[in-house]
Design a protein around this nucleic acid. Sequence first.
DNA 1: TTATAGATTTAGGTATGCCGAAATTTCGCA
DNA 2: TGCGAAATTTCGGCATACCTAAATCTATAA
Lengths: 251, 251
Amino acid sequence: MSPTSQPSGPGAPGSPGSPGSDSTTVQDYVKVIYSATEWQDKPVTMSALAARLQVANSSVTEMVRKLVGLGLARHEPYSPVELTPSGLRLALSMVRRHRLLETYLVWELGYGWDEVHDEAELLEHTVSDMLIERMSQRLGHPVRDPHGDPIPAADGTVQQPDAHLIGLLDDGHRGTVARISDANPDLLRYLDSEQLKLDTAVEVVGHKPFGGALTVRVGSDPGREIDLGDESAAAVWVSTVGSHPGCNLEQ
Amino acid sequence: MSPTSQPSGPGAPGSPGSPGSDSTTVQDYVKVIYSATEWQDKPVTMSALAARLQVANSSVTEMVRKLVGLGLARHEPYSPVELTPSGLRLALSMVRRHRLLETYLVWELGYGWDEVHDEAELLEHTVSDMLIERMSQRLGHPVRDPHGDPIPAADGTVQQPDAHLIGLLDDGHRGTVARISDANPDLLRYLDSEQLKLDTAVEVVGHKPFGGALTVRVGSDPGREIDLGDESAAAVWVSTVGSHPGCNLEQ
DNA sequence: TTATAGATTTAGGTATGCCGAAATTTCGCA
DNA sequence: TGCGAAATTTCGGCATACCTAAATCTATAA
Ligand SMILES: [Mn+2]
Ligand SMILES: [Mn+2]
Ligand SMILES: [Mn+2]
Ligand SMILES: [Mn+2]
């Protein structure tokens, strides 16, 4: 995060799990700690946080110390970080904001799904609870964002879809695209150009040898076959509805 | 402004008069310097800025020094502050953002005109140029905000309505409400309850003695008469269309 | 079992912005 | 013309958040 300064968002300090009086930096750290274990459950290390937040390791050490002081995180020296219940509530509130904003930008203002992440990353800290709820209302209270990520309800409830990373599925497995990581806009544009969107039917046709590309049939019936590289295969989740046996779900 | 910190908004540093890489603090100072002379032209003093921004005089001295360094303002010691052409461009860009946001919140998300100011005050620093232009497009490129304040065009053009403070008009003067200061939400709610809205026809019926209240006929034909106190009379501007003679327009 | 590479924390410093108190300057009025 | 009140600036400090370099700890691999 850049060092320039600004007031933190509105919202009463009291409302349960709302951003309240936390700085935008605290909000981002907590949100990143949460989302690091959303689609895989390796515990979050300090250096993983540093990498995601694009700051030095020492900065993470300092901020995590602060989060612990605020009662938002637990941390033993030289160990991974965990959220407290209070930190989890804040994180869910931020995630709700982020994903509702993305959804609003796509459906109400004609943004592409590759254009919304950065805008939401900033707005999430600024928008009031009232604005968020009005947007949710206007959208008919959606439960997932344009990338398939679940939108936590205002009360903190989340319904995580039962999906698996396509790169870990065995040949012959089929299902529909349930989620695509929005980390890389270029990748989103590429997948879009290949007709691989949310809810598209897909089937794992085969693996190229030596950890190479993954061949996937896209679309219903005959479909088209495309090859996904490592990065693509690590960004697409497939719902296990009507799944075949033999899925490597450990790790 | 509170001391918590956050990245400043997006937008290329280059685009003419766009927020670019200026901190939200710089953006607010420049905007306040601009709007201080928008409806009256006393030069802006340091203490006036401090009062509007709710910071100490010494803080203003420091920030103004910085604005001068950035080429956004001119300032001789112990004198009022002025914007440079570059500062004016930035200010107009911020004002456009603020007013377009207010307008969007009212027309697209059902906000009341008394609820939008604080929300816009924060969002103006965070929203991208792209989002602003999409909102403008969605609204049909409005030229004034819910309070009657003109919305500068993307190229910096402003069409300031020809209006006068109702408190300075002589008895018998009539016209339509062209602008109501949004500084005080309570006042906005009061005026709203009295049917005194934008474009409402009004006539100055009389002045109570000793600088007291102003009696105003509201609405067309018979209309209703209401008494406006000092604060109200200093917040309502009336368009001079079909004006009668005798308007105290000096000062 | 013990080096030692890698992860993490500590130490020392920078940049923003803001504050109160203490100078300093200006300007109206006696 | 000169005095003092008001406005403005200077000075010393604080809080946040980040960084680099230098410890320090942990865990793996001889
Ligand atoms: Mn963010
Ligand atoms: Mn998303
Ligand atoms: Mn503002
Ligand atoms: Mn307004």
